[in-house]
Each structure stands twice: as C-alpha cells, then as structure tokens.
Design a binder for these strands. Structure first.
Length: 129
RNA sequence: UCAGUCGGCUGGACGGCCGCUCCGGCAAUCACCGAAAGGUGGCCGGGGAGGAAAGUCCGGGCUCCACGGAUGAACGGUGCCGGAUAACAUCCGGCGGGCGUGAGUCCAGGGAAAGUGCCACAGAGAACAGACCGCCGCGGCGCGUUGUGUAUUGCCGAGGCAAGGGUGAAACGGUGCGGUAAGAGCGCACCGCGCUUCCGGCAACGGAAGCGGCAUGGCAAACCCCACCGGGAGCAAAACCGAAUAGGGACGGCACGGAGCGCAAGCUCCAGCCUUUUUCCGGGUCGCCGUCCGGGUAGGUUGCUUCAGGCGCCGGGCAACCGGCGUCGCAGAGGAAUGGCCGUCACGUUCAUCGCAUCCGCGAUGGGCCAUACAAAACCCGGCUUACAGGCCGGCUGAUACG
C-alpha cells in the first residue's frame, strides 16, 4: 500500500470527492498519471489523545490493507479521516462502510478536480442499518 | 488481627494468521520513480514504547547567533546549615517551627533596632496608641447616724490607675506572690525576650551562667536591602546536496525605445535605470537567444542514537552518592513504525447450587461479563509535577488479643 506523505497531497485530496460515513470520511482525488493508488490517513486532535488516535489510524489502515487492492484505482489518491466511532466499532462494520464508501466515490462524476469545485458530497445511498 | 504510616516492585501470559519499521548478511549491481540530489523494490537472521514515553516546570549536553575584556547597571531566578552532583528550584543528612498519642508529615525557613509603605472591619485606643464600662482615694452637697466623727450609700467636680469586662488576627510579655488608695516589672520567683560570657557542634543551632526590666507588634509570595547564580534562541537548532520559475553576474551572437520634423543623415522632446547628497551639467545602459557562474526556494540526506548508560559483585559513606572489577548492547519513526483480527488461560467481578461456620466469611462446581487503569517515544540525559485498574513485598507506629 502506497502511503501519502506530503502535506500538499493531503491538501489536494481535500479538494476532491468526499464520502462521509459514521466511522470516517473518505476523500478521493485523481492524480492525472498512472502510478499505483495511494492512501493517506488523518485523525485530528479533536478526536482524542495520542493513544486513541493511533488506534483509530491503525484500524483504518488495516481495513484498507485487508480489502482487495483491486478496488482502489491506479492514479487515484485516497484519504481517510478517522472519526471517534471507529475506535470501538466491530471490525466488520468498518470494512462494510469502507466498501460502500468506495462505491459511492467511484460512482461520482470525478472530473479530475480541474473543472469547477468538485468538493460536492455524495449523500448516503440507502440506510446503513 | 484491625487501623495507620513510609518505601520498593509490577503494569497480564501463551499461541495462530496477516502486516509495519530499523539494523546486519547475501544477491542480481538488476528494475522502477525523479531534471538532479536521492528514493523504492527480494531472501534470511535479529531488535522494536513508558513508569510516567505525558505536562513542558527547572537543570545540563549538543547546535547556531552575539561577544576585546569582564566589572557595573538593568532584568530574572534562588534563599536555615552541611553534603551529593556535570548542574539544578533536585536528592541526602541535620537544625528550627507547625500538625499528629505515635510511626511520620508539612514549611519561599535570609534581613523588619537602612528606609518607604500597609495593617480593612470592629474597637476608647493599632505603633513612640488609648480610657467606653470599670477600679481607687480626695473635695463639695445630700442620705444615714446623731453630741461630733467614723462606717454605709447617692449626686457633682477635679484627679490617679490600666487589674477586670468588652473589640480584634494582633492591645507596650505570661503565671504566681508581694506591694499599693487602687494599680503598674514597682519588687521577687519561674517562663518568654534581648545582651554578654562560657561549653558542645564544620555550621544552622543547642545548653548553662550572669545581666537587663521589656526596649525589637505583624506583613519582605509590598517596594526594598544583602548574598549567590544567569548572554540569546532552539533539532522546525544546524550542516551538506539541490531543481523548475523569477531575478543577479560574465561571455558570445542578433537587434537598437516612443513621438514630432525631415527624402535621408540627423535634430528636438518624452519615458526608464545606474552613477551623483540634491538640482544643473556630463557620462553610461536598456531588447532577444545561447552557454557558464554564484546566491537560494520546493525537495532530499545528515543531525539520529554509545552514553553524566543498564545489570551484578566488592570497597568507602548514616545516606544521597562515589570508586574498582566484570558483563550487556537495549526503539529510532518522520502525515510519524512498534500493529490488526482471533483462540486458550490467569486475574478481577457477578450470579446460581452444594458443603463448612453462631456471625463476618471460607472452599468447591458451573454460567455470564470485562479481556483491562493512566497514557504512547519525536535530539539526548538528570530531576520535578500530574494521571493510574489490579496485584505483590518490606520497614515502622497505635490499639486489641495472646493458644
């Protein structure tokens, strides 16, 4: 799994397509080249102390790692912003939400970010039960 | 046994599957990304959070900046004494005071007879203060007695006193005896305080004797005085490598601002830059392309983990700690690794049943729950402070019971 390291990459992804979920917010941005998909993780200090933030990031990272790599498209950058429920939620729930969020993000009219403000949020499709 | 106090230790265990990061070895010296610097990728072996990693409150190392010297000033800090230490506001051992029956514990604990300032409210009086109630005798008038006076008592006046009451955080030292009209260190004894001398102690300080007759109220986390210490910023420090773009310099080549007049050469004016303290005068230059040079941004690499190091033994010291010998190698991330999921067990808690027991309770079996508290390195050390489920060990104190 290729990780996002530079602050500029995170800022760019913030201007991409967003898909909010109860456990996290998924952001996606098309890079315009054909390298492997890259993933970044963000847990803000508002969520909690370092221990809780570390745990949320690691669980989210594990979700991305265990989900099939083919679901992530080459040339795309993904950023997961952790939320507090991801700390104690059952692991399978987070995986389900991640799959659903990926579908929503890919179904969106991803205009590669160049045309217009493409920060539109995609509403949840159906109930998450 | 109960209650308490002080100190130390620990901070779940084992296993399975899938991952991350660093180091070492091997291997194509190959592939990919990047303009470059550089980075990524394979296999094997090994290492991989804490007692507080935390708060960032002190002290250092290290790095850069500043600095002739170092004093003084200013500012900040520290503040009983001695020791430990690289250093400290830390630690150890003492001293003094407060609290506690005690083990213990707490204390910004120098100077208030250098100065300035403050001491609210209450109270008569609050700093060389003061008399409201009160106490005391004296004078006058009455009451009373009556021969007069004394005693008793009331009012008025001029005085004496500060014992008692009352106010307050604090009232020109406390208790007792003497003394006196009543009182007062007025006198005496003891205590407190101060001074002197002697003794013990390195010292803080303690003890004794004599003298003084109470003078020196408190606040210095009020200014201040005294002694000692301190240059500033911080690993986003700093060093090295180093694009693109813009700008600077050198060289070469090409071209030679605008307007007016004029066929043209040219002339005049304007714009703009540099030199010039400024104006005038005078001089120079302007654009494009290419190559090279230097500064430097993004970015990258280093700094980055071996030390005031851990453990054991011996020796010195009451101790903090120091010395010697042996041994070990013990995280190095960088949008930030050290994990995710699961199983079993221990521990804990709770419920049910059974047994023992006067009770508190103890034991066994089975089931359920949680699978732990606090909190995660960010250059590195020494401390302090704060947070912390559960468990273990030891010293000491008090009470009770003694088989």
């Amino acid at each position: 799994m290729e990780r996002l390291r530079q602050r500029a990459d995170f800022l760019a992804a913030a201007g991409g397509v967003k898909a909010p979920a109860p456990m996290f917010v998924l952001q996606m941005k098309v890079r315009g080249e054909t390298g492997p998909a890259r993933v970044g993780f963000t847990v803000t200090k508002r969520i909690g102390g370092a221990v809780e933030r570390n745990r949320i990031r690691r669980r989210l990272r594990e979700v991305v790692r265990l989900s099939s790599p083919s679901r992530m498209r080459p040339g795309h950058d993904y950023v997961l912003i952790g939320r507090r429920p991801a700390l104690n939620a059952p692991f399978e729930r987070i995986k389900d939400e991640f799959d659903r969020a990926l579908r929503r993000v890919h179904a969106a009219p991803s205009k590669s970010g160049s045309s217009g403000k493409s920060g539109a949020e995609i509403p949840l499709q159906g109930s998450v039960e």
